[in-house]
Design a binder for these strands. Structure first.
Lengths: 129, 129
DNA sequence: ACTTCACATTGACGTTCATCGATATAAAGG
DNA sequence: CCTTTATATCGATGAACGTCAATGTGAAGT
């Protein structure tokens, strides 16, 4: 039994996919939906967190110890950022021995892209600059 | 000639789509790419802005004057938020008479969803909780 | 048990941000 | 012109955030 160890950092605040909202171009967001979505976008609204997420997503699984060097941030700062990504439900951590391994949560990102969909309007010519 | 009036608010800072980066699960982001992307996500990381964007996207075109009531924010606050969305390249404004009409920029959102792509890993069972 | 190592938590500091009142700008209508 | 209307800008304020040094915690190794 490899796992089911409690995630380090904090637990995700909500399962966005299970209740949240039509695509933005279909129906206007309610306030509570917008707040929940904004929390997830806020987790991606930092260059360091974006790079952490991208490192985790591109490698499938990354140890916290391998994040300090490429990002040039202190250990507490890295820990803070991984925690925020975990709370947003974008990554999950698993503690194995002394190390914490992080993996992306594909479903949460899918939900974001689904909600973000915007159908191009028919007259998008001459809109440039 | 309906238009080509200069956008109100400020101009978008960059054409993300023309230069930015592979999907996050393909290749790790460089620092400059992460910063540019984080700026766009930051524009969506606020409930009021998300609702504004969703109203604009769902109706195709919205006047600033029709945003204050549903969002229950002051006129300067609405102006501030539409400006931030415009700088992020998510909406464009067109001034017609005394009114400013806002429309979504589909390409910018497409770019976000493209970059955000995360291929589900093969072993995502038992990951829940 | 003691030490070491990986990571989380705390506390502090400077910066950015959301918000609004007041004011400026600019277009219509008289 | 003068007033009205829609929106942008300015200035201020309180809250949230990114960062790191210091410290806490808990698992290995000896």
């Amino acid at each position: 039994m490899n796992v089911n160890v409690k995630s380090p950092g904090s637990e995700p605040t909500a399962e966005l996919a299970t209740w949240c909202c039509a695509p933005v171009d279909t129906e206007a967001l309610r306030d509570d939906q917008a707040s929940a979505l904004a929390d997830v976008f806020a987790a991606l609204a930092d260059p360091v967190r974006l790079r952490i997420f991208s490192l985790i997503a591109s490698q499938g699984e990354v140890c916290s110890c391998n994040l300090e060097a490429p990002l040039q941030r202190s250990q507490p700062t890295i820990s803070h950022h991984t925690s925020r990504l975990a709370v947003a439900g974008l990554i999950v951590g698993e503690k194995r021995g002394r190390w914490t391994w992080w993996r992306p949560v594909a479903g949460q990102v899918d939900e974001l892209t689904r909600v973000l969909r915007v159908t191009p309007s028919t007259d998008d010519v001459d809109t440039l600059a």
